[in-house]
């Protein structure tokens, strides 16, 4: 009953914010305007999906921002200069994420600490590859990220595709249901004959894959990279998942909501710049919007207000 309304809040908050933006700046209501508003949302949406896949199995990933930065550095250097080697490194990174999930489960380690440690590792590797900002985006990647489809801008099309694919994967498919079950009750999934270590590795591996896609999309937009390019994605992605109606425990997540949450966060930044707010208060106003939207959750979650 509650889960039916889970998606309602993110949709309403995005609609309200979008309406306010158009009211402030009617010229944004165009193909070009929408593209500008949501351009940077594509990598954030992909990173939010990655974080959601980790939160789905009751863990949290504090290394995601550093990981996306590392991928961006690899993309702007190896993938551009020697595509085969670059691809190999990216595949190895995804496998590394899967291994991290398996280790966390098998040794029963706290994910928050292991990912914290890994954030130093990813950050160090990124510095190693690209000590100073630079590199270049591969031409094909640049072309993909700046393509101009008819009717709707690239960013909107991409958001819809990401939401649809992950909805099918996480909510509709059999394996997605089992993965959400790991977050709901890992013991009963194990009793049902599943290997939970493999499932966790799969969830983390998928998160790594989406993290890689986020880093590539980011380089496609910015055309160069540096080792700190995406550090803020760690907190942005957590906020996006929660804005999208996800919960930290119990495997209760919504891929469509997460994508909408990421769009809302991106739009909040644009909206504030239209407001002509003093730069001092830009960051604070983002925090206030976050609190405001989450307060609306109270209306939906009175029932579960025991804690």
């Amino acid at each position: 009953m509650l889960s039916k309304y889970r998606i309602l809040l993110p949709v309403v908050s995005l609609a309200v914010l979008l309406a306010l933006t158009f009211w402030m700046q009617p010229r944004a209501m165009s193909y070009f305007g929408l593209n500008l508003l949501f351009n940077l949302a594509v990598p954030i949406a992909l990173a939010t999906i990655a974080q959601m896949l980790i939160i789905m199995v009751n863990d949290i990933d504090l290394s995601l921002g550093a990981f996306v930065s590392l991928v961006a550095c690899v993309t702007a250097t190896y993938l551009n200069d020697t595509p085969a080697l670059g691809l190999l490194i990216l595949v190895a990174l995804v496998l590394g994420y899967a291994a991290m999930g398996a280790v966390i489960h098998v040794l029963d380690l706290p994910a928050i600490v292991v990912t914290l440690g890994m954030s130093f590792v990813w950050g160090g590797l990124a510095l190693f590859i690209l000590p100073t900002p630079g590199g270049a985006a591969p031409g094909w990647l640049r072309a993909v990220m700046t393509v101009k489809p008819p009717l709707m801008p690239m960013a909107v099309v991409a958001a819809i595709v990401i939401a649809a694919v992950t909805h099918l994967l996480v909510i509709r498919s059999g394996i997605g249901t089992v993965l959400r079950g790991v977050g709901g009750n890992a013991r009963s999934i194990a009793r049902a004959g599943w290997n939970v270590a493999q499932l966790k590795a799969l969830a983390y591996g998928l998160a790594g894959l989406f993290g890689v896609l986020a880093g590539m999309a980011l380089v496609g937009l910015t055309t160069s990279a540096d080792a700190n390019i995406a550090l803020r994605y760690t907190l942005l992605s957590i906020a996006g998942v929660i804005l999208g109606g996800g919960e930290f425990i119990g495997g209760k997540v919504s891929p469509v909501g997460a994508v909408i949450g990421a769009l809302t966060l991106t739009l909040a930044a644009s909206f504030l710049s239209f407001l002509r707010l003093s730069p001092d208060w830009q960051i604070g106003a983002q925090g206030a919007i976050l609190i405001l939207v989450l307060t609306a959750r109270l209306l939906f979650s009175r029932r579960g207000a025991a804690a």
């Binding site: 440690g117 890994m118 954030s119 130093f120 590792v121 990813w122 950050g123 160090g124 590797l125 990124a126 510095l127 190693f128 590859i129 000590p131």
Partner: peptide, 8 residues
């Protein structure tokens, strides 16, 4: 870079 990797 090495420092950060080893710290982690």
């Amino acid at each position: 870079g090495v420092k950060s990797v080893l710290t982690g």
